[in-house]
Design a protein around this nucleic acid. Sequence first.
DNA 1: AATGAAATCGACCAGCA
DNA 2: TGCTGGTCGATTTCATT
Lengths: 171, 171
Amino acid sequence: MTENTTAYSDIDEKDLEILEQVENDFDVGLETLSQGLGLSKSAIHYRIEKLKENGIIEGVTADVDPLALGLEMVSITDVSVTHEEGYSENIGEKITTISGVEQVFYTMGDVDFVVVSRVQTRDQLNDLIEEIVAIDGVNETSSKFVMEEFHGARNVTENLTRAARDTILDS
Amino acid sequence: MTENTTAYSDIDEKDLEILEQVENDFDVGLETLSQGLGLSKSAIHYRIEKLKENGIIEGVTADVDPLALGLEMVSITDVSVTHEEGYSENIGEKITTISGVEQVFYTMGDVDFVVVSRVQTRDQLNDLIEEIVAIDGVNETSSKFVMEEFHGARNVTENLTRAARDTILDS
DNA sequence: AATGAAATCGACCAGCA
DNA sequence: TGCTGGTCGATTTCATT
């Protein structure tokens, strides 16, 4: 085995700590991070910049509560397609552009796409599903309502298993 | 009908524009927002503060790229449970706490939970599924691999249909 | 609720280990 | 290359409208 050269871009423990914090709340401020890690504010700043440049931090965004905008209806739609050529990618992207669609997964198995969508009303959901069906190559759809959502740890760093952490730090 | 009193907390068009921007990239800066909206920087600041206080902006967070941390393996697991009492909530939360689990949906239908998880290796996935099965009340699981992910518009505001926008602005 | 001025915090520059 | 301390610019807060 030729040593671990996977491109974890030299993430060390301090970087991981920073990631854990800012992934939860970017407003913590350099001061707090600085005190918690025993580094100067500038150092923290540079580390965050580097994490952005290396694409580890993809961006800093405001998280908007869907419920606050009336998007109370979540559904999961299984989509199967007719398997010609390599149209699958194309279909996936088309589904993504439909208004109300949040996530699209292309999966192995009899169900080809799993689509998570979020809308305000049942009418909007009907429209959305019709738009999926209208896509060329879409074969069959089957939807289920989401009654409750446990949006657990969306945080990548908090979700790391011990093994995963170790792999990253052994770089 | 007694007029629309749904708690959209007086969101106006300018608020929606701000939300669209900061949901994509919080680093845009007050200057840019100020120019784009024809308001002073302070005014923008206060509006953002208010959106946070009202819970419309749940927080500002750094988005970490899972791939950068080696989390390349995504899977969707359908979980059915034995229907006794109101244990469902409990089970949902237990699943959420499992390391590697990203999202849990409690749905209507024969499949009770849909679980999206993200891990580094197949071993980690096996462990994760074993942990789900070990939960009291879990009946059966069935997993599929995700080959491609179209993480389309995660942005709530961009995903609003015209109808949804109108509903919000008519407050 | 919005504005402009004052205090505070983050971004950048140069020197240093 | 990465950290520190200081300066500049941006953000936050204050007093006022």
